[in-house]
């Protein structure tokens, strides 16, 4: 009987290949694909394709359920390894910061502009309102951030914060705190985008209001210049990161509200990747900002140097996103290289 069965013959002829693939996959699962020898790596896709063809054949000629299920699962496992993507951390990082991140930002430049506009709008509101009515300051700035500064502070007290001497040797801890705190907020900004982007817009706006209120406080004390020189060296990077995270969140919200020709689920998945890339990049920005804020601002008190750093960081980010972000012409034969 068995000799007349085509399904039995199929198995007899191909089983060795399946078993070989199975052993390779088991080893790749345990120790990673990189541990396979070059010989074995060469065999893997061949065996994979042969197993797939066996599956197609088995589906049309075999009624041995165990055999068909085995082949289905074998092919599924092989698929994960063959098409799973296998970059190392180093390669992933390099690729991310040289291509993915700047390009994504460049692609989303309109959303970034909207996000920045929201913050600037908030800033103007906070600034003008506080300038007219200093009491509003209490409503705009939470006590924790004020560091004791309020409309009743004297000019000297306000000035003192700007040129504070570092207390003891707590600089690294301070920088670490700033970085983790800000980055955490950036991550939150991304997730809030799921709620149609409304909380993100609010967050951006209120952040601007807060900064504006501070600015007004210092303008009233005739310290406009020193204040912005205190904020901007790290602020350029930090505010940029906040704006970018906000743009990512807004984009997520937009993908839900206006999915275009995709279904909402697919649209969310597509934009989710883009938005996540931006937020991950922003974590690096927050790290830079944290270091500048934690060390540089505390240690360097000369206005000229502060100005230079602010301008330099602004230029740097402009060039980074402007040059690396702009897509170059890709020739058809270079695609995927």
């Amino acid at each position: 009987m068995k000799d007349t069965l085509k399904s039995y013959q199929l198995r007899r002829e191909r089983e060795a290949g399946w078993r070989e693939l199975e052993t390779l996959l088991a080893r790749a699962d345990r120790r990673g694909l990189r541990r396979l020898s070059s010989e074995e790596l060469y065999r893997l896709p061949l065996l994979h394709r042969s197993a797939l063809s066996s599956l197609s054949v088995a589906r049309s000629i075999s009624l041995d359920r165990n055999l068909v299920e085995y082949l289905e699962n074998l092919c599924a496992r092989a698929h994960i390894h063959v098409y799973g993507g296998k970059a190392t951390y180093g390669a992933t990082l390099r690729r991310f910061f040289i291509t993915t991140f700047p390009r994504t930002v460049w692609e989303l430049r309109r959303t970034v502009a909207v996000s920045a506009l929201l913050m600037i709008l908030g800033g103007l509101c906070g600034y003008l309102l506080t300038l007219r009515d200093p009491d509003l300051y209490y409503g705009f700035v939470p006590d924790a951030l004020a560091e004791g500064r309020n409309p009743t502070s004297t000019r000297e007290e306000l000035r003192e914060v700007l040129y504070m001497e570092p207390e003891g040797q707590r600089l690294s801890g301070f920088a670490g705190f700033l970085f983790t705190h800000n980055a955490q907020i950036g991550l939150l900004c991304f997730t809030l985008g799921v709620a149609a982007g409304v909380p993100v817009a609010l967050l951006l706006f209120s952040n601007g209001v807060m900064l504006g209120a501070f600015g007004a406080l210092y303008t009233r004390a005739d310290l406009t210049g020193p204040f912005w020189l205190w904020v901007l060296p790290h602020g350029v990077t930090e505010l940029l990161a906040v704006v970018l995270c906000g743009a990512a969140g807004l984009r997520l919200g937009a993908s839900l509200v206006f999915p275009g020709r995709h279904s909402r689920i697919d649209s969310l998945a597509l934009e989710g990747r883009t938005a996540a890339a931006i937020v991950m990049g922003c974590i690096a920005l927050f790290l830079v900002a944290g270091v500048i804020e934690g060390y540089f601002r505390q240690l360097v008190h000369r206005d000229a140097v502060r100005l230079a750093v602010a301008v330099a960081t602004a230029l740097f980010w402009l060039l980074y996103f402007g040059i690396l972000g702009r897509p170059e012409r890709v020739e058809p034969w270079e695609e995927g290289a």
Binding site: M1, K2, L5, S7, Y8, R11, E15, W18, R19, E22, L25, D29, D64, N66, L67, Y70, E72, N73, L74, A76, R77, T191, V194, L252, I265, D266, L268, A269, L270, G272, R273, A275, A276
Partner: peptide, 29 residues
Amino acid sequence: LGDLLAGTVVIFEPKTRLFDDLVGETRAM
């Protein structure tokens, strides 16, 4: 939510166990 954002699915690792073909067993013969 994260799966929806990324377009990912968590699956069971496919298990592969191939038993002997019943047709080839001595009892069948």
